[in-house]
Each structure stands twice: as C-alpha cells, then as structure tokens.
Amino acid sequence: MEKQVSSFEVKKGLAEMLKGGVIMDVVTPEHARIAEDAGAVAVMALERVPADIRASGGVARMSDPELVLKIMESVSIPVMAKVRIGHFAEAQILEALGVDFIDESEVLTPADNAYHIYKHDFKVPFVCGCRNLGEALRRIGEGAAMMRTKGEPGTGDVVEAVTHARQLYADIRVLQSLPVDEVMTFAKTHNAPFEICMQVREIGKLPVVNFAAGGIATPADAALMMQLGVEGVFVGSGIFKSGDPVKRASAIVKATTHFRDAKMLAEISRNLGEPMVGRSASSLSEGELMSPRGW
C-alpha cells in the first residue's frame, strides 16, 4: 500500500495524542515558548485571548497569518488556530499555512447564520465546541476530529464548562441505556445523526476525544473537569490574564495529570499569585454570551 494521508483516523489520532494535556491560548511567540516550557501539549495561536475579545468588542476574525506562522516557528508542539463558524475560506487559509488543528470557534464572530464548515473536505483536523450530545454529534457528522465542551470563554468562571460537560455525559448515559428501537427517536429529539448515535450507544463515549474549555482558570478547575470525564483542557484567558502566567501554566499542566490526587493538587495550587479577575457568566447579558453561537 502507498502512503495514505489525512484519513479520519489520522486526524482523530492527533487528538488522541493530546489527551491528558493542556492546550493554551497564546498571542505572541514568547507566550508560545512559555506555554511549551510549562508543558502545554499544544498552543492556540490568536491575536487576542477571549477576555480581551470581550473587552474590545467589534468583529473577531481569524488571526493574521503572519502571527500564526511566527508562533508555528517558535515551538515544537502542535499549533492550533481559530476560524469563524462557517468561514471555510479562513479554514482554507489556515490549512495552507500548515497549522496542525483548526478550531471552528464561537469565540470569534460567526460568519454564517445557518451552516458550519463541512470539515471532511479538509486535510487538517478540526475541533469544535458543544453544549450537549446533539451538538457534538452534528459537528462530528460534519467531520470534526475532536470536540470541546464550550463553557463560557473569557470569563474565568467554570460554571458553564461544568454545565456543558455534565449535560454531554448525561446525554451519553441516557443513550447507552436505550433499547435499540428507541435510538431513532433519541436521534430525532437531539437533532443528531442516527448512525453516530448508534456508535456512541455501543462504545459509551464520543467517537472522538473531548476536552473542556471556557472558563478554566485554576488547577482545581482543571482537576474538576478531568474528574467529570473530559480528556484534557483548553485554557484561554486563564493563564496569560493571571498574575504569574509561568507558575500558573505549569500548575494547570500538573493538575491535569494528577487530577485525582487531592494531596498533590493542594501542593500544586499553593502560592500561584492572582488568578484572572474574570466575570461571572451569570452577569453577562444575552448578547454577550459566546456559547450559544453555532447550531
């Protein structure tokens, strides 16, 4: 057999390698090197972290390719970058740059009010956000090779990350418990592709890796999400908006590995300086919420 590139297995495979790890938002090559030295498994290259996107308002778009390339040159770990929901031309550009993963992200201003990107058309793998099983399976149906529960980005408030992860895993438990003749109606109720529902019922988990995102700011937050069943964490504003990013980044990495060991977590959590100030998710007005973006 000849070499075969870009199969779904190979795309999904990179996400498998990221498990148990922390993916950090970085806005400069210096941040990227700090993240790599702290033990990040990948970095998300962007111009502004979600907290700053919130603060500055306006339209948030794909980052300047120049910045993405500089970050790619500065680290040996995989580099991810974000595109607007539905903006397949931004995705084509990031693929041409050679980024390792594309995040079709609700953190940026959506480019399409009805459709997400058809991700099977791309060689590069995609990660997408979800709040429940139906949303996850719609994205996987479109070709997402990795999921992340959305949480509420840029808040430093973990409550929405918890809500979405609990909902996702509760939906999976319900699906698993169903007799086979009830799966089609489950698929209908959740607006989810039937074949993937059958697969989830069989294996008891999503067919791709799932991380937590949106509001994780402390080692305890990371441990909480890992104990709830996610396979790794994205930390956006939580690191570089904190008082001591180097210490905090390294502590969150350690907490993601030793997430069940409370004694170690106590040690890891000591003396990290100020966490990001944050905003409680419940104080946001409807128009400020990012997690409802996408369909």
Partner: peptide, 15 residues
Amino acid sequence: ERNAFGRQIESFEID
C-alpha cells in the same frame, strides 16, 4: 528527529 515528516497534514498510514 521529531516531526520528521512535517506538520499534521503530512501525517499518514502505510502497510
């Protein structure tokens, strides 16, 4: 040599 085949889009399967 790490990442010797290139970035993720060069990842592959072969018998």
